[in-house]
Simulated scan of single mutants.
Amino acid sequence: MQDLPLNIPEGSRKEVMTYLEPFMLNEMNEYLKPVEEMWQPADFLPDASRDTFFEEIRDLQDSAQELPYDLVAVLIGDTITEEALPTYESWLTMVDDVQKNEQGGWMKWVRAWTAEENRHGDLLNKYLYLSGRVDMKQFEISTQYLIKDGFDIGTGADPYRNFIYTSFQEIATNISHRRVAGMAKKSGDKLLAKMCGVIAADEARHAKAYMSFIAQAIKVDANEVLLAFEDMMRKKIVMPAHFLRESGEPQGEAFAHFSDAAQRLEVYTALDYIDILKTLNADWAIDKISALNEKGEKARDYLMKLPDRLTRLADRIKVPEIQYKFKWIYG
């Protein structure tokens, strides 16, 4: 990257975004893959053109029957989260200075990121349909509701808050898909394990991209980035599916039960939330940032002390032991 400019005023998001655009375009190929080299859902699913199609579906269903109930619930919640992609794309295009130019670097990134993410919901949706364990109409109702309801993650149009959020969220989805893959493999469903494994790998690449954007922003606007990070952590990072609901239920009801299932299985827990914060603090070298103003120093100190504070609180969390009966799952 070229020498840091001296003429960017502190807190000027527009100038920082303009400055970072060449860096992002230059680095984009490191975090995204050419379309022709990417896996596609068809690489994993039974092929209807083959004589073995129905045999492959029977094998898929036999393996899916061995998955624990809570794991199926978590997989469905993860899938609906992925299927709400239209919400995430429209949200990212509203970030300040992203949509200034339809053919500009930031819009190219958003479209390319969306194109890669789109495969995740496609793959898992088809697996759930073929598994025979899921009431697809109830699943589809929840998906439509989630897109219709949108989300409120407290980032506004601020690029710093939004890219801090995506850094955190992409790591969280990597953890969830990776652990579902491991549990599916233990249950004997090797196909699902492969599916979730490749999705998790995508999420890891995307996390590195957003983390790199923030790392570069810190170099030119450290005080404002730290204040944005502190604000996001004080509000708490909410999951993109926090409004998830089932048919006839209020917003967020199904998400609470989905979260309980994920914690019972230890697919994603309060300790993972803390570990992600530690990862971001370390990757962005928060403790080493110097020449801050008074507010920046207070934000840095808060972020460094927060993991220990959250760890003490995590010990008090009680997860219901009784499984919730979702409308999504037969039986």
Score class of each variant (00 low, 15 high):
Asp260Ser: 14
Thr166Cys: 09
Arg179Ser: 13
Glu56Gln: 15
Val220Cys: 05
Asn29Asp: 09
Asp308Tyr: 06
Ala209Glu: 02
Trp106Leu: 06
Ile141Cys: 01
Pro320Arg: 10
Ile153Ala: 13
Asp301Met: 06
Met239Lys: 07
Trp106Ile: 01
Trp39Ser: 03
Asp231Cys: 03
Glu55Lys: 10
Ile214His: 01
Val72Gln: 12
Glu102Phe: 01
Ile218Leu: 15
Ala207Cys: 01
Ser290Gln: 10
Val35Lys: 05
Ala261Trp: 04
Arg264Pro: 01
Tyr210Ile: 03
Glu297Asp: 11
Ser49Cys: 00
Asp51Ala: 15
Val95Glu: 03
Lys208Leu: 14
Phe213Glu: 07
Phe163His: 15
Lys288Asp: 15
Ser90Ile: 11
Gln65Ile: 00
Lys325Leu: 10
Trp91Phe: 05
Glu82Leu: 08
Trp328Asn: 03
Phe53Ser: 00
Glu294Asp: 15
Met304Glu: 01
Glu82Ala: 09
Ala184Asp: 09
Leu85Thr: 14
Thr79Gly: 10
Ala285Met: 07
Pro86Glu: 09
Cys196Tyr: 08
Glu37Pro: 00
Met24Tyr: 02
Asn118Ala: 14
Ala73Ser: 08
Ile8Lys: 09
Met211Gly: 06
Ala285Asn: 12
Ala193Thr: 02
Ala285Gly: 02
Gly77Leu: 10
Asn293Ile: 04
Glu224Leu: 03
Thr93Gln: 12
Ile8Val: 15
Thr269Glu: 06
Leu303Val: 01
Ile237Arg: 08
Thr279Trp: 08
Asp47Met: 05
Glu10Phe: 08
Tyr210Met: 06
Phe163Ala: 04
Val267Met: 12
Gly11Trp: 05
Trp39Asn: 04
Asp43His: 14
Ala48Gln: 08
Leu85His: 13
Ser259Val: 02
Leu292Asn: 12
Lys278His: 07
Leu303Phe: 02
Leu130Val: 01
Glu36Asp: 11
Leu277Ile: 13
Val134Lys: 08
Asp62Trp: 00
Lys148Asp: 15
Ile237Ser: 01
Ile329His: 05
Ser212Asn: 15
Leu306Ala: 09
Asp47Gln: 11
Leu303Glu: 07
Met233Tyr: 08
Gly188Ala: 00
Gly104Pro: 10
Gly182Trp: 06
Asp221Ala: 12
Pro307Ala: 04
Ala200Gln: 06
Ile175Gly: 06
Tyr127Ile: 02
Asn223Pro: 04
Gly156Arg: 06
Ala84Gly: 13
Gln138Gly: 12
Ser176Tyr: 03
Asn293His: 05
Gln40Thr: 12
Asp122Ile: 09
Gly182Ser: 06
